[in-house]
Design a protein around this nucleic acid. Structure first.
Lengths: 181, 181
DNA sequence: GTAAATCTATCTACTGATAGATAGCCATCA
DNA sequence: TGATGGCTATCTATCAGTAGATAGATTTAC
C-alpha cells in the first residue's frame, strides 16, 4: 500500500514531466487521487515543497538506476552506455521528458531553492560522466566531453517528446556510444 | 517606430523564453507595453494566436541568421560551425533559452497547432544540418548525426540556462565542431 | 466620417493558500 | 473495560488574486 504522500508525488511527477511546473495545480493532483486540494496542501504546504520533494525523489531514483546499470560496467564505453541507458529508460518507461529537463527549461520561472535543486541534478550528472572519462584526458576537454554527453541526452529527450518519436532519442544517443569506443 | 503588434511579440518572446508558455499572461504583456490586456487581445485574440505568431517569427529569424552565417561557408565543417554559431548567438544575445526549446519541453501541454509549429521548427533544423552532412554517408547514420547535433545544441542551451553558465554551452558545443572536421 | 486601436468594465473559471470542523486511530490512565 | 486526550488526515468553505476572454464605449489617425 502506497501512502498518500507517495501518490501525490506520483501524480505530480507525471503531470509536471508532461506539462511543466506552472501547468500543474493542486486541484489537478487532488482530482487524480480523489481527494480535496486542501488535503494536498496538508502533505505539501507550498508548491515549492512539492517541487523540491519531487526533484529529490527523482534524483535519488535516477542515480540508483544509474549506479545499478554501471555496477557491471567495467570498461569506459560500458559506463557511457549505462549512462545513456538510464536516460533512455527514463524516457521510454513513461513516454515523458526528464523531470529536471523540464524544470531546467523553466528554470528562470521557478522558486530559488527549486532552481538550485535542478541545477544540482545536472551538476551531479556531469560529474558522474566526467568520472567515467579517461583521467589522462586534457582537463578542459574532459569537462567539455562530460557536458556534451549530458546536453545531448537532455536535448534528445526533449526532441523526442516534441517530435513524438522514440526513434529520435535513439538517433541522437547512438553517436555518443560509438564516439567513446 | 515599431508597431504595437511587434512590441507585443517582443515582450511575449522575452517572457516565454524565460518562463515558458503557461507562465506568461496577457496582463504581463500589457504591463510591459503600458497598455491594457484587452488591447493585447485586439492584436492576438487567443493565446494560441500569439504563440503561433511567435514561433513563426522566431523560426524565420533563426533560418535567416543561419543562412546568413552559412552563406560564406563552403566546407562542411564551416557549415556545422555556422549552425552552432546561430544557436550560440540565440543564447548569448538574450541570455535566454531557444523559444522552441522551451515550447518543445512543454509540448504536451500546448494547443495542437502550436505543438505542430514547434515540431516543424525541429524538423527543419534537422533537415538543414542533414543537408550539410556528406551525401555519401550511410543513410541511417546521416540522419542520426543530424539529430544528434540538434539535440546537443538544444540540450546545451537548456543546461547553460539552468546552470547559469555560458561556458556550459561552449563546452557542450565545441565537440560538435571538432568531431566533424 | 470612417476605420483602426485602445479603453473601461466585466465575466467565469481557476490559482495557491488558509481557517476551522470532523473523523478515525491509538496509547494512556482510572 | 472504557473513557480521555492527542495525533493524523481529511473535509468544507472560503479568500484574494489572476487567468483568458468578451462587449461595448471611446479615442486616434487619416
Amino acid at each position: 500500500m502506497t501512502s498518500t504522500t507517495e501518490r501525490i508525488l506520483d501524480a505530480a511527477e507525471s503531470r509536471m514531466r508532461t506539462k511543466g511546473y506552472h501547468a500543474v495545480s493542486f486541484r489537478d493532483l487532488a482530482e487524480d487521487l480523489g481527494i480535496k486540494s486542501a488535503s494536498v496542501h496538508y502533505h505539501f504546504p507550498q508548491k515549492e515543497d512539492l517541487g523540491l520533494a519531487l526533484v529529490g525523489r527523482y534524483s535519488e531514483r535516477f542515480f540508483a538506476a544509474l549506479n545499478g546499470h554501471a555496477a557491471k560496467a567495467k570498461s569506459r564505453p560500458e559506463k557511457i552506455k549505462a549512462f545513456c541507458k538510464t536516460y533512455e529508460e527514463a524516457l521510454k518507461s513513461s513516454d515523458k521528458n526528464c523531470l529536471c529537463g523540464m524544470l531546467g527549461a523553466e528554470s528562470r520561472g521557478l522558486p530559488d531553492q527549486l532552481r538550485q535543486a535542478v541545477a544540482a541534478f545536472f551538476d551531479a550528472n556531469i560529474k558522474w560522466i566526467w568520472q567515467a572519462l579517461p583521467p589522462d584526458m586534457e582537463a578542459g576537454q574532459r569537462k567539455a566531453a562530460a557536458t556534451q554527453i549530458v546536453a545531448t541526452l537532455q536535448g534528445a529527450m526533449m526532441l523526442s517528446i516534441s517530435l513524438g518519436s522514440p526513434k529520435t532519442f535513439e538517433n541522437a544517443a547512438k553517436g555518443l556510444i560509438t564516439a567513446h569506443t
